[in-house]
Amino acid sequence: MKRTALLAGVALALGLAGAAVAQTKVGFVYVGPVGDGGWTYEHNQGRLAVEEEFGDQVETVYVENVAEGPDAERVITQMALQGADLIFTTSFGYMDPTVNVAAKFPDVKFEHATGYKTAPNVSTYSARFYEGRAVQGTIAGMMTESNIIGYIGSYPIPEVIRGINSAYIHAKKVNPDVEFKIVWAYTWFDPAKEADAAKVLIEQGADVILQHTDSTAPLAAAKAAGNVIGFGQASDMAEYKPSPRVSSIIDNWAPYYIQRTRDVMDGTWESQSVWQGIDAGMVEIGEITDTVPEEAKAAALEVMNGIANGEYHPFTGPLNKQDGTPWLAEGEIADDGTLAGMNFYVEGLTGEIPQ
């Protein structure tokens, strides 16, 4: 009798111990450092939100500064081998490495940010950053005095081209004399290159700098130049408020990361493609500071609110392509397929998109 009770007690203890370690392991692969103040910082805030939401039910791991390409495939493979149940790969260039690794680990769930390739165990997710660019372009067009707006592009991929087009369309709407100058940095995160790009644009007369790169270096360059404004990219970059940072696009990944982790935990995860914007809260507009004149602030908020309530789409015709050929007729709205693969400038932008 005593022996039976003892064995039952041991079994119960082992069962409780087993329950205690049955964590869901969630991995994150980052293209920059978690302290970049921008893109990777916000993804890491999402990871921390997962920890806060689920406590000891989850274990999160991450690797930062992972180069796009073969190195990414190695890191993702290692995460899967180390028992990750769910892996978020957070840069466009991780697309093929993610799909390749997923084929070898069919029981692991993968989530790739900003890509377009899916599989039974691979989802994609992205934010409609171009909606935030419409707000920024409105402010930029109304605040520039030189009528020259500088734009630092990372890589000439559809996501970045969409942003340039959206910002230009909305700057041009409020200021027909506006001109965009674009410098390609060919990096997501390199403070020195980003600062150099900003300085080149400022030397060319730009008094507003927009960026699709991840560090605060362009804002630092704007501050050093004086009389130049800029915007927070991917995170608020609030340390540069009230100027040169006059507003920001904030990527809020936390709700998505929490939901997809919950889906894995309760067995309801399925492959999907998600593209959310201001209305869903994945794209947020940071505080528009008092440096922005009231008229410009009101115009920017009108654009933001129109997008949020579904009454306005940033790509609404009439719009032509750069070579003057018609693209969207009066009142026509761009479809998601065209936006997702955008490889052209709109009419009025100068220069060629690098191939």
Score class of each variant (00 low, 15 high):
residue 292 V to S: 05
residue 293 P to G: 04
residue 253 W to M: 11
residue 215 S to F: 06
residue 282 M to G: 10
residue 237 M to E: 04
residue 182 I to G: 03
residue 204 Q to R: 10
residue 179 E to N: 07
residue 287 E to D: 07
residue 256 Y to N: 14
residue 185 A to T: 08
residue 266 D to G: 10
residue 164 I to C: 09
residue 237 M to W: 03
residue 261 T to P: 07
residue 279 D to P: 15
residue 187 T to A: 07
residue 251 D to R: 09
residue 200 V to W: 02
residue 265 M to G: 08
residue 244 P to C: 06
residue 223 K to H: 12
residue 248 S to Y: 02
residue 231 F to E: 00
residue 238 A to C: 11
residue 167 A to K: 00
residue 168 Y to R: 11
residue 205 G to M: 01
residue 175 N to F: 00
residue 247 S to A: 05
residue 195 A to W: 09
residue 260 R to P: 08
residue 177 D to R: 04
residue 178 V to N: 02
residue 246 V to T: 08
residue 183 V to Y: 02
residue 271 S to V: 11
residue 297 K to H: 04
residue 220 A to N: 04
residue 241 K to V: 05
residue 172 K to S: 05
residue 190 D to N: 11
residue 204 Q to P: 02
residue 169 I to M: 14
residue 260 R to I: 13
residue 161 I to S: 03
residue 179 E to D: 09
residue 192 A to L: 10
residue 247 S to I: 01
residue 249 I to Q: 07
residue 172 K to Y: 05
residue 244 P to M: 03
residue 240 Y to L: 06
residue 297 K to F: 05
residue 225 A to M: 05
residue 229 I to R: 02
residue 215 S to T: 08
residue 190 D to F: 09
residue 181 K to A: 01
residue 223 K to V: 07
residue 202 I to D: 01
residue 205 G to R: 01
residue 166 S to T: 11
residue 297 K to Q: 02
residue 256 Y to C: 14
residue 239 E to W: 00
residue 232 G to E: 00
residue 238 A to E: 09
residue 195 A to V: 13
residue 174 V to H: 00
residue 292 V to R: 00
residue 214 D to L: 00
residue 192 A to D: 13
residue 166 S to A: 14
residue 288 I to Y: 03
residue 228 V to G: 00
residue 183 V to D: 02
residue 240 Y to I: 01
residue 238 A to P: 05
residue 238 A to Q: 12
residue 284 E to K: 15
residue 282 M to H: 12
residue 281 G to A: 13
residue 180 F to K: 04
residue 217 A to P: 03
residue 213 T to E: 07
residue 240 Y to M: 04
residue 174 V to L: 00
residue 160 V to Q: 06
